[in-house]
Computed example of a mutant assay.
Amino acid sequence: MTGIAPLPDADWPAEITDMLPGFAGRLDVYRVMAHHPALLRAWADLRQHVVVDTSLGLEFSEVVILRTGHRHGSAYEWGHHVSRARKLGMSEDRIASIAGPLEAMAPADAVIAGAVDELLQASRVSAARRAAVEDLVGRKGLFDLMATVGFYTTLAFLANSTDLELDEGIRAELDERPAPKA
């Protein structure tokens, strides 16, 4: 067996039918998660906060997600969020820098990406980095950064462990305009 396939509409679990027209039906990562309906249902509120209502702001949120996806070697997360970052107007150079050394990034991005690195290396943000993040995005932003890393770490585990391919629309977009390498 190679991977776990996203559930098509015809096989969508009855207990989460109400979720199909929303976020859960739009991306294959959630169609894979639908194999466990209770998990997908529980995921919804955290997803709303982390993805939509974050206090990081959309661009810093993308920096967190891209760095997390890169560090986990998740081509799925990297590709999807390159697309999202482009739609936000982030430059190709900025996106590419997020996969590189902190010294090659814009200073604010390096603060954010450095916090991601610390979380993934030591399961904590150092006092100095914590202060720098709070100066940049506030205390709520610090908490949202940590929650976003945890959220996208779980999605990277899911995408990587199920051999999830890029969604068709993202694959077509990246075929036409390749993503910077992660």
Rank of each mutant, 00 (worst) to 15 (best):
A131V: 09
I95K: 00
G89K: 06
G141I: 06
P107M: 07
T148E: 09
G100H: 01
A159T: 15
L166D: 02
L136N: 00
D109L: 00
I98N: 00
G73S: 13
A147V: 07
W78E: 00
L66T: 09
A156L: 10
G79K: 01
R86Y: 03
I95L: 03
M146S: 14
A85Q: 05
S74T: 03
Y76H: 06
V125I: 14
Q121C: 14
I112T: 01
E77L: 15
A110L: 06
R124H: 14
A172K: 07
G141V: 08
A85M: 07
D167W: 08
H72R: 14
L56Q: 00
A122S: 15
S61H: 12
R84W: 10
G114I: 05
L164K: 00
F60M: 05
E59T: 08
L155H: 05
H72S: 13
R139Y: 10
A113F: 01
G73R: 08
V116H: 07
T54M: 13
A75D: 12
L120Y: 13
E165Y: 11
K140A: 13
M146G: 09
M146P: 15
H70K: 02
K87M: 14
A156S: 13
L66G: 08
M90C: 07
G141Q: 06
R129I: 10
D144S: 09
A127Y: 04
H81M: 08
R171S: 13
L102F: 06
D117F: 12
L120D: 15
S161E: 12
R130A: 14
A106Q: 04
A113Y: 00
E173P: 05
E92M: 04
V116Y: 07
S161N: 11
R71E: 11
R171A: 14
R67M: 11
R124D: 12
R129P: 07
I98Y: 01
L158R: 01
R124G: 15
E134P: 03
A115W: 03
R129F: 08
V63K: 02
S61D: 07
A99V: 03
V137M: 04
E62Q: 15
L145I: 04
F151H: 11
A104L: 11
A156Q: 05
A132S: 08
A128Y: 07
T153D: 12
E92P: 01
K140V: 13
I98W: 02
G100N: 02
L155F: 15
E59A: 11
L166W: 05
L158K: 00
T148K: 08
A106L: 09
H81I: 05
G100L: 01
E173T: 08
L145G: 05
H80F: 07
L102R: 04
R94D: 10
